[in-house]
């Protein structure tokens, strides 16, 4: 049986068991998360994202070694997509970090998306909370850069590293405006390739377009070769200095508020949608409106608006009234 005390004491079995509950959407998970929540909020959370094959796992492997060298415990959540057809997955990110497997100060957990869109699942977010409550001072989230993932990871991580490789179709070109804004550190990996300098130049150009501000962290572009470790120490240092930067002048607090508010908003949005839809779909107004559409008595947009007009949100509590 899971004991919250064990999780808080950093016991890996307990923490892993808890993450499993979260991942399986076990009813017990919510109860336990509630009790863990007050204990979280201490970790520095790093997001590492980029297209498949750019070397994210190898970079994280190097980062773990660097942070361990500074005597900091590290936890990693490595997210991979589930097969949309079978629901199965091979979770192989750990393969490149396996030399740390027997190190008690390292916790690596692979997670499959299990049908969630946008790469990062809510389960991954909750898993970070568990690791935070377990007392890991540094938590790294790895996620592939499909769809909206990069935007999602910025809602969880204090510092986002975007990994790219020079000179490929899905390399530098893949970094579009929206993603550019979420990155704190840009990493040109496999920098031994000939057009690495060009990639750095291009990225600096794109970043230069951001309006300068003394309150805002100026994103950096770094070159690395994850396979032989070149540039990884510098990368670890930059992440830590970003954290230091955030801790000054209340910036971390501000960032935290922004992240939490966004997450809270998305939670409420999902819950609201779920509840409102559940109530609406069984309401008479909804059924009537749909009948009208079927008989071509009205068009779908007008019908949808008429259904929405039946909603009244009561101010004194949050019941939905149809």
């Amino acid at each position: 049986m899971l004991d919250i005390k064990d999780i808080l004491a950093g016991n890996q079995n307990a923490g892993a068991g808890m993450i499993r509950l979260v991942e399986d959407r076990d009813p017990l998970a919510h109860e336990l998360l509630k009790r863990l929540y007050p204990h979280a909020g201490r970790a520095f959370i790093i997001g590492i994202t980029g297209s498949p094959g750019v070397g994210k796992s190898s970079l994280i492997d190097g980062l773990i070694a660097e942070f361990r060298g500074l005597n900091k415990r590290v936890a990693v959540i490595a997210c991979d997509p589930s097969s949309p057809v079978t629901g199965g997955a091979i979770l192989g990110d750990r393969l490149r970090m396996q030399r740390h497997a027997a190190d008690e100060g390292v916790f690596i957990r692979s997670m499959a998306s299990r049908g969630e869109k946008g790469g990062l699942s809510r389960a991954a977010k909750d898993a970070v909370l568990v690791l935070d409550a377990m007392g890991y001072p540094i938590i790294i989230i790895e996620t592939a850069g499909a769809g909206q993932t990069e935007v999602d990871v910025a809602d969880i991580a204090h510092s986002v590293g975007i990994v790219t490789i020079p000179g490929t179709g899905d390399g530098i070109q893949a970094i579009k405006a929206g993603i550019l804004e979420t990155g704190d550190v840009f990493i040109v990996n496999k920098s031994d390739r000939p057009d690495s300098e060009a990639a750095v130049f291009e990225l600096n150009m794109m970043l230069g377009l951001r309006p300068p501000s003394k309150d805002v962290w100026k994103p950096l572009v770094l070159q690395t070769q994850a396979l032989d470790g070149t540039g990884v120490r510098e990368l670890a240092r930059v992440f830590l200095s970003h954290f230091d930067f955030l801790r000054q002048e209340g910036r971390l607090e501000k960032k935290q508020i922004k992240m939490e508010s966004r997450y809270f908003q998305s939670l409420v949005r999902d819950l609201a949608l779920e509840k409102i839809m559940a109530a609406l779909e069984t309401s008479k107004g909804y059924q009537d409106a749909f009948k009208k559409i079927r008989l071509r008595g009205t068009d779908p947009v007008t019908a949808a608006e008429s259904v929405m007009d039946t909603i009244r949100v009561l101010n004194n509590d949050t019941k939905y009234h149809c």
Binding site: T86, G88, A89, I90, L91, G92, L95
Partner: peptide, 14 residues
């Protein structure tokens, strides 16, 4: 690969 295709989540250690 076969277990993945059977819907399981496979962690490969190397």
């Amino acid at each position: 690969l076969a277990l993945r295709d059977a819907g399981m989540e496979v962690i490969y250690s190397g």
